[in-house]
Simulated assay, not measured.
Amino acid sequence: MKLSDRTVIDFKVAKIFRENTDRINSVDFATNGETIITSSDDDSIVIYDCLNGTPKRTLNSKKYGVDLIRYTHAVNTALHCSTKIDDTIRYLSLHDNKYIRYFPGHTKKVVTLNMSPIDDTFLSGSMDKTIRLWDLRSQNCQGLMHLSGRPVAAFDPEGLIFAAGINSESVKLYDLRSFDKGPFTTFRLPQDKDCDWTQLKFSPDGKLILISTNGSVLRLIDAFQGAPLQIYAGITNQKGVPLEASFSPDSRYVFCGSTDGKIHCWSTETGKKIAELLGDHPGPIQHVQFNPKYMMFATACTNMAFWLPVTDD
């Protein structure tokens, strides 16, 4: 089944989960699409089975707190940031809820964490104005970059380059093999006066970069030339919360939540809004992610919702 405007419009909430007592602060699908993992401000990690539509396991991280949870390439391990004690990144075995390794170094809150799509490398960015490059096999940082402001960062789908968004005004591209030489290209964008960049993502085909904000706009730029392609506006975000927007697996659509319970969807080809879907969320929908393998997406506030296309015929 291929995604089309019609399919997008037909998406409905198929299941709502109320496993959490506080805001879900991050979600991540496994690359095989069979499970999704979430972390929450209530210090819990919940794994859901996407095929059966059931919660699978709940783990707790009461001591360190948990944020920005990410699957590694093994579905039984994950990385996450801490919300208590210090700003160390932790590598967790989901199988027995034990830590495999710690990655110390950041001195302020970690605000971006990304696993390489091809190997055991990952990158982290922090309010301490640094981006660090790591390897899961060593607790020592493999590379350190000092920046002029808060970073957002992401790997491209090939895992050969990464993009860093700095000060909500420029995107710098680095080659992983020689990133210590500095960026090989920099794109400057008009600065948003009333919001900050909160996330950056490459499209699955590697041609586009999506910039999420804590305001009511998203920006889409060309990943090669940095040309601004589209601005997606009209999202309700009165509380200034960071809203995670995501691409569909075919790169043709962008989905984003809002603070008023709506999911917005635009076409990346035309920039037109395709749908406003009503999600039954009591709080701000901070996360929307499309399953990489199956025709479903997930949205999260304090609750988690699974969406499926439901046709009336």
Rank of each mutant, 00 (worst) to 15 (best):
M1V: 14
L3R: 06
R18L: 02
E19C: 10
N20D: 11
T21R: 12
R23M: 10
N25E: 10
A30M: 13
E34Y: 03
I36N: 03
D43R: 08
S44G: 12
N52E: 12
T54W: 04
P55T: 13
R57S: 14
N60K: 03
N60M: 02
N60Y: 02
K62T: 00
K63P: 00
L68D: 00
H80W: 06
C81A: 15
L94M: 12
D96P: 06
S116F: 05
I118T: 14
D119L: 03
L123A: 09
D128N: 08
T130M: 15
R132E: 03
Q142S: 13
G149C: 03
R150E: 02
A154H: 05
F155I: 01
P157V: 08
I161S: 04
A164W: 00
S170T: 04
S170M: 09
K172A: 12
L173M: 15
L173C: 03
L176A: 11
F179K: 01
K181Q: 09
P183T: 04
F184G: 01
Q191A: 08
C195K: 10
D205R: 10
I211T: 11
R219K: 15
D222I: 13
I231K: 10
T236N: 03
G240K: 12
V241N: 14
F247E: 07
S248T: 15
H264N: 14
H264G: 13
C265V: 15
K272H: 13
K272I: 04
A275V: 06
I285M: 07
K293F: 05
Y294T: 04
F297K: 06
A298E: 06
M304T: 03
